[in-house]
Simulated scan of single mutants.
Amino acid sequence: MSCEVYDLIIIGGGPVGIFAATYAKMRQAKVQVIESLDQLGGQVATLFSAKKIYDIPGYPMIKGTNLIQNLIKQTKQFEPEIHLNETVQKIDQKTDFFKLTTSQRQLMTKSIIIATGIGAFQPRKLKLPESATFEGKQLQYFVNDPDQFNDKDLVIAGGGDSAVDWALEFADQAKSLHIVHRRKNFRALESSVARLKKTKTVFETPYLISGLKAAKQQQIQVQLKEVRGEKQKTLNADYLLVNYGIISSNKYLNAWGLNAQHGLIPVDSTMQTAVKGIYAIGDVASYPGKLNLIATGFGEAPLAVNNAMNMLYPERRQPAHSTQLVKNLPQFKNN
């Protein structure tokens, strides 16, 4: 085990974890990011890289992949240590530091920020015996190439923000578009649903997908059944895009002594958990009134970093704004 002791270890390299590392380096903390995937960006980079995001301050609209690229470019200015393909397995609290055991090594830190989001994740799949026959072809759960839906017959299944956002994205470029939801009302943002209703999208509600069959010209036949009714109908499409949400697991949190509940970590107003010196931010953090937005996590990151640094170095005066934060950093002295 290395004798080097870090000020701060950030567990999780999603958007919020990346920005926390940037801000920690602005506070001149000795910081390291540990990410279990082989790339930074978390769920946004892995699942929604092509999705347009509308609620990031300063951007009228930005695609997920561009947001992550900008965050990485920003953090590279400050050069935090980043370790990919590595999983934190154990946290041991010592007198003056924490010892972390990962899948590759052991290391020591004075404080920790957990930014693991929803944890390990996978799409909630369509539960039909024949689904596997079409998955990765006509049946898809993610959008890797938005252009593949140009002038195609598309069916989208789901009633949340993701389903409605993708429907808005493809409403103009698809040849035809149907959205299938088991309820009349959608869970998505009301303004998004209102915008979608002004497009050519056909709303198939309240219906469930009851079966899939191969159709002519390599299309898929989507069989629908009315919820609490007897009506049935079929739709032929080039693609079926299912957005039923994500199945996630943060089960490792239970071993870290943080009073995690249902994969979420309760925090106080300083973003500190039940263990002094361990903080949580982003979707994994829980408190009354919490709203799971990337923008929320961006606000929580400086809170956690500043409170951690104030605990470690109470003699340091907390700078008021970013120009004061970076003026003493070598790479910014001439700017």
Rank of each mutant, 00 (worst) to 15 (best):
E4L: 12
Y6H: 14
G17T: 01
S36M: 11
D38M: 00
Q39P: 00
G42D: 01
A45I: 01
A45G: 11
K52H: 14
Y54H: 14
G58V: 04
I62N: 06
K63L: 09
N66H: 11
I68H: 10
K73V: 01
E79Q: 14
P80N: 12
N85C: 06
V88W: 09
Q89F: 00
D92H: 12
L100R: 08
S103E: 04
R105V: 02
G117N: 04
A120L: 12
P129E: 03
S131T: 12
A132Y: 06
Q138L: 09
L139V: 14
F142E: 07
D145R: 13
Q148A: 04
F149R: 10
N150L: 15
D151K: 15
L154S: 04
G160V: 12
D161W: 05
A163D: 11
W166I: 08
E169A: 14
D172R: 12
D172E: 15
K184R: 11
S192C: 00
S192N: 15
K198Y: 10
T205F: 02
G211K: 05
L212C: 07
Q219W: 05
Q221Y: 03
V222K: 05
K225F: 02
K231N: 14
L241Y: 10
G245I: 13
I247Q: 15
A255I: 07
W256E: 05
I265Q: 04
P266D: 10
V267K: 11
S269N: 15
I278K: 10
I281S: 03
A285T: 02
Y287M: 08
G297I: 06
P302V: 01
A308H: 06
A308D: 01
L312Y: 11
E315T: 11
R317M: 06
T323H: 12
Q324L: 14
V326F: 06
N328Y: 08
N328R: 09
P330G: 09
F332A: 13
